[in-house]
Computed example of a mutant assay.
Amino acid sequence: MRSMFSRSIVLSLLMLPAMSMAQEANGTTAAATAAPAANALIAAAPQDKGQIVFFREPKFVGAAVGFKVREGEAELGKLRNGRYFVVTAEPGKHEYNMHGETKDVLTLEIEPGETYYVQASIGMGLVAGRPNLAPSDEATFLSKKLKIAD
């Protein structure tokens, strides 16, 4: 089931440039297809690399539980309740994961100069929380009152 979810994310990300080219061919480019400008919290991505903003919205349930976000065995950062951090990545396919009672993996195809948003959450588990990584967007990120991770 997770592999189908990962595939659908990758396919969705691959379709975005094609949709943008089709709109340009029709002469109907919209501001929504343009690269987003930097916001007050997150600077624009470097032109030769992509960046991923991992965030976790503040909630009472699971507030005491924190997770480490990893790529392979390398720890990228810790996500606690109401926190975020930014990772710069080389273009290409990347697999990010969080471990808890279970393991969740999110696959992203990183494009140069693009910023991606990933929302982490915790589900109910038998012994501990079940981590979840899901693609998100800038509007969702900005709508939360978040602090930079320590």
Rank of each mutant, 00 (worst) to 15 (best):
I122G: 02
F55M: 08
E138C: 11
K103A: 14
P135K: 04
E24D: 11
S143Q: 05
P91H: 06
K49Y: 02
L108W: 07
P112W: 01
A43Y: 02
M21G: 08
S12P: 02
R2A: 12
L108S: 12
F60D: 14
L146S: 13
K59D: 13
M1H: 14
R130F: 03
A22P: 04
F5N: 15
P58M: 14
V69H: 01
M1W: 02
M21R: 15
G27M: 08
Q47D: 13
M15N: 15
K78F: 05
E111N: 07
L133Y: 01
G100N: 12
L142Y: 00
G129L: 05
E111C: 05
D48E: 14
S121A: 07
R56H: 03
P58Y: 11
A35N: 12
F54M: 10
Q23I: 08
A128P: 03
P36G: 13
L13Y: 01
S143M: 09
V53Q: 00
A74V: 14
D150S: 14
Q51L: 02
E90M: 10
T88L: 09
S8F: 01
R56Y: 03
A44V: 00
F67I: 12
L142F: 04
G72W: 03
L108E: 09
L41N: 05
K93G: 08
R2S: 14
Y116S: 07
L126H: 06
A34T: 15
G72D: 00
S3F: 06
G62T: 04
I122A: 04
E114N: 12
G27P: 06
A44D: 11
Y96K: 10
N81A: 13
A149V: 13
G62E: 03
A35E: 11
A37R: 13
E90P: 07
E75W: 00
S12W: 03
A139L: 07
F60P: 11
S12N: 12
F60L: 15
A139Q: 01
H99Y: 09
E95T: 09
A149T: 15
H99K: 15
A35C: 03
N39A: 10
M124N: 10
N39T: 08
T140W: 00
